[in-house]
Computed example of a mutant assay.
Amino acid sequence: MSGTEKTKAHLEQAKGKAKETLGRAVGNERMTAGGHADQAKGNARHAKEDIKDTFRH
């Protein structure tokens, strides 16, 4: 996995987790859903890079 893509995936996941936690704390369902979506994007990016790594070897 490329270092920059790996970092981007982890940052998206962390950003999503923070947004989701903050949304739950203040009772904002839209922010909570947005955080969950950001985490899903990070997970998808990570999965894509794992697949690329599998085919490189």
Rank of each mutant, 00 (worst) to 15 (best):
L11A: 03
G3F: 15
G16R: 02
K15M: 09
K41I: 09
E20K: 06
H36T: 14
A47T: 12
H57Y: 09
A37H: 10
G42M: 09
G42T: 04
K6C: 05
M31F: 13
V26M: 12
E20H: 03
A14Y: 00
M1L: 13
S2M: 06
N28P: 01
R56W: 11
A47V: 09
H57E: 14
T4W: 10
G34C: 06
R24F: 12
G34T: 10
G42I: 02
G42S: 06
A14F: 01
N28S: 12
A33V: 07
A44H: 04
I51K: 10
S2T: 03
G35H: 05
K19C: 02
G23N: 04
A40W: 07
H57P: 01
T54S: 09
E5Q: 04
G42F: 12
H46L: 12
R45Q: 09
A33E: 15
A47M: 12
S2W: 08
K41E: 15
G23Y: 08
N28E: 12
D50L: 10
R30M: 10
A33D: 14
G16C: 05
Q13C: 03
I51Q: 10
G35E: 07
G42C: 03
A37S: 11
A40S: 11
A33L: 14
T7C: 10
D53H: 13
Q39G: 02
T54H: 12
